[in-house]
Design a protein around this nucleic acid. Structure first.
Lengths: 229, 229
DNA sequence: GGACTGTAGATTGTCAACAATTTGCGATGT
DNA sequence: ACATCGCAAATTGTTGACAATCTACAGTCC
């Protein structure tokens, strides 16, 4: 939030939050492999902090669900099963549908502003597709959907979706799924944007449903014995 | 989770979790007033533990959203505005709708088992209505909806809903809203159960929507200068 | 008299040492 | 040879003390 003078209120909760954000980014990028243990002491040393704040960060990520904790044994990176993928995308469909409905019930300005942001993200995505930067594409994919949900203006919905977005990125990166056909990906998001702009509620909801179902298929159909594309 | 022998795996993370559960119960029951500060040292003393575990518990509740933290100033019980109530119930409608769809797409046994649990809760609710125990009624109300969502079997959906249920209880208790007419409340839940049992998807979704809209009205319409019913 | 500055108190944020628990390996007995 | 018991290393859980930050009050200056 910016003040009228363009200054920023920096009050909040930095340290543990900062560590958590950093770790989350590392995890969703695949720097930590699923099932890998995270040692408190060594990690604290690497980040040049103490075990206290790091512990808080880990606990936070545990609650988000991308880490799992076993008492007296440590925390481990979540291992995603087929079941998890289905769960994640089922919830995502529900949340995005709710956001779509709220957005279309909102003011035209709200819709317009959201579309603007989405358009920019798609532009970025197209650029990264050109250079085949999968890591960046995955990030922008999630940024698109997160911005979409954010457009609805429901802070709780946004909070919920951030976790889902992180888990989705883990699915994509860890399963080494380089999106089947990237140009299709840009098209699909453009389609969602067009439907939102047109105010086609029914079409948008259907498109969201299809988008999610397709993603689950892409992520689950191929057997895990396939290492790279 | 129970093992085949009926034994329980107690692995998990007790202490901080236990403290968090205890505090959450106190908060949603209204023992702590909205906006009230929670002092780490004194609270740790009261619970006969150290600041470390208690801090973890507080942080957990912050992430759940029923506490808010101001850096270097402490944590405070969330103050619910009209906006929050609208947000909470909008998300609840979305989550319960998703659960309803998943449940109706599931096996008949799954539906049957869920109905059984819901029926029991309604029975309990009727008993508490007879003695006008508002606190218990609010708890059972949320238990009904939580069981409903749990019936869908999506662990992420359940986790999300638990937070919403806690916030809802805070709304009800803190606003001193003694449900407008309690017999209507039992009827309404019975209606939801009937629709689920009948497999009437459209009717169930509509009923959920109405249920939520009505709740928002009840919680927001009366001005806060009214202290008790 | 009003506004600003400086200080005091209190509370949270961080840290390092201690205690408890678990896992793995090796010795022992059958 | 196999299973069981016991020990040792490592890691997490907990604790108390120290440091940084913020709020409130009092004193001073304009």
């Amino acid at each position: 939030m910016a003040t009228p003078d363009g200054l920023f209120v920096l009050e909040g909760r930095p340290t543990a939050q900062l560590i958590a954000d950093q770790l989350r980014e590392q995890i969703v990028q695949g720097t930590f492999r699923p099932g890998q243990q995270i040692n408190e002491s060594v990690m604290a040393g690497q980040l040049n902090t103490s075990r206290g704040p790091l512990r808080e960060a880990l606990q936070r990520l545990c609650q988000e669900g991308i880490l799992v904790s076993h008492r007296n044994r440590g925390v481990f990176v979540l291992e995603l099963e087929t079941e998890d993928i289905q769960e994640i995308y089922a919830v995502r469909e529900s949340v995005e549908s709710a956001a779509a409905n709220a957005l279309l019930d909102g003011s035209p300005e709200q819709i317009k502003a959201t579309c603007e942001v989405l358009r920019e993200t798609i532009g970025e995505m197209a650029k990264q597709v050109a250079v085949s930067d999968w890591q960046a594409i995955a990030r922008l994919d999630m940024q698109f959907h997160t911005s979409f949900v954010a457009g609805a203006g429901n802070s709780r919905l946004i909070r919920i979706y951030k976790t889902l977005a992180a888990e989705s990125r883990m699915c994509i990166v860890n399963l080494e799924v380089s999106y089947p056909r990237v140009d299709v990906l840009v098209e699909e998001h453009q389609n969602l944007l067009d439907l939102l702009e047109a105010g086609d509620r029914k079409g948008l909801l259907k498109a969201i449903k299809r988008h999610m179902q397709k993603a689950v298929e892409d992520l689950t159909e191929r057997q895990p014995d396939q290492v790279t594309a």
